[in-house]
């Protein structure tokens, strides 16, 4: 089990990480979600030992890692753009970690064959890595990180440089692989969907501090604050005063269970419905086809412009529509 306690990393006078605490139970996958520059990569580099922490402790099953050099931690790291050794074949890349452990040659060969099979690259040991596509490189990098059976596998935006279709397929495969082999992992990404798909636990990182942590469902249902809500992709965020179960804004009223005070509310786009009979009126100012649904933007007079999900028969641009507010989330 990995436990990181109040980790702080300063580089050139800037605090890249500031008091970050995390723990990952054996066999769990923790997704670290944050925009670029939030300190995700530095977190992985520090856990792996490539970066010395300024303050805080790193422990594995209670053992202090601060005196353990990089090569003796027994962790695996899959780099953002893979860092495959260009002068070695696929097989030699995958075998590298095993060779460092001085395993017998026969065992190395068998293990390389096994992990290449896991990632769907069976029998390609002797190919050069220079002519591989992005997706193939990603698989080899994953195999290389997995081969020495690391206690902890860290993945730094492993799908970042791949196209969308490939990414959506690989993320599911990756999740299956991690679960099947009970691999303890920390997965870093800036993409919410990727994080939600792969994670048992989720941690949102903002400017080097933990903005929120919990299960993906918890974080999605109840973002900790407005920044987190916006980062997760919510755009309908409004302030309202609550009086006896009713939230009141100058332009609308809706029901809530929040206590009597000023609150910030998230109105999820699927919680709003177009209803000609609703009291709240607005003008359609935007309309985008999203495959399974339409995303319609409705400008409320003297109020915000709200994103609304409409399954079919989306109103046309300029139309006057009524909006009914269903489920809301109080922050």
């Amino acid at each position: 089990m990995l436990s990181v306690d109040r980790l702080t990393v300063e580089l050139h006078g800037n605090k890249i990480l500031d008091g970050v605490s995390i723990s990952v139970a054996d066999g769990d996958v923790l997704a670290v979600l944050g925009p670029s520059g939030s300190g995700k990569t530095t977190l992985l580099r520090t856990i792996s030992g490539l970066q010395q922490p300024t303050e805080g402790t790193l422990r594995w099953d209670g053992e202090d890692l601060s005196v353990v050099p990089v090569e003796e931690r027994g962790f695996g790291l899959m780099f953002q753009d893979y860092a495959l050794f260009p002068h070695q074949s696929i097989g030699a890349n995958v075998a590298f970690g095993l060779r460092m452990q001085h395993r017998p040659l026969e065992e190395i060969r068998a293990r390389v064959e096994e992990v290449l099979d896991w990632v769907g690259m069976t029998g390609l040991e002797d190919r050069r890595i220079t002519n591989l596509s992005g997706g193939e490189q990603q698989r080899v990098a994953l195999a290389r990180a997995l081969a020495p059976s690391p206690r902890l596998l860290m993945l730094d935006e492993p799908l970042g440089s791949l196209d969308r279709a490939l990414r959506e397929r690989l993320i599911v495969e990756l999740r299956q692989l991690l679960v099947d082999h009970a691999i303890t992992a920390v997965y870093v990404t800036h993409d919410q969907e990727e994080a939600f798909t792969v994670a048992d636990d989720l941690l949102v990182l903002r400017d080097g501090t933990v903005a929120q942590s919990g299960t993906p469902e918890m974080v999605y249902r109840r973002p900790a604050d407005e920044w987190t809500a916006r980062f997760l992709g919510f755009r309908n965020i409004v302030r309202a005063r609550v009086i006896a179960g009713e939230a009141v804004t100058p332009w609308a009223r809706f029901n809530t269970t929040a206590d009597n005070a000023e609150h910030t509310f998230v109105l999820p786009p699927d919680g709003l419905t177009v209803d000609p009979d609703a009291d709240l009126k607005g003008t359609v100012v935007g309309r985008a086809f999203r495959g399974g649904h339409y995303l319609v933007q409705v400008a409320v007079p003297d109020g915000p412009t709200l994103d609304v999900e409409v399954a079919r028969n989306a109103p046309t641009l300029g139309a006057e529509v009524g909006l009914r507010i269903g489920s809301v989330v109080a922050l």
Binding site: E71, G76, G97, R144
Partner: peptide, 15 residues
């Protein structure tokens, strides 16, 4: 030369 190549080797157990 990408320094991460050497770092990758370190993490895989090379001194």
């Amino acid at each position: 030369l990408d320094p991460r190549l050497e770092e990758a080797a370190r993490i895989l157990g090379a001194g």
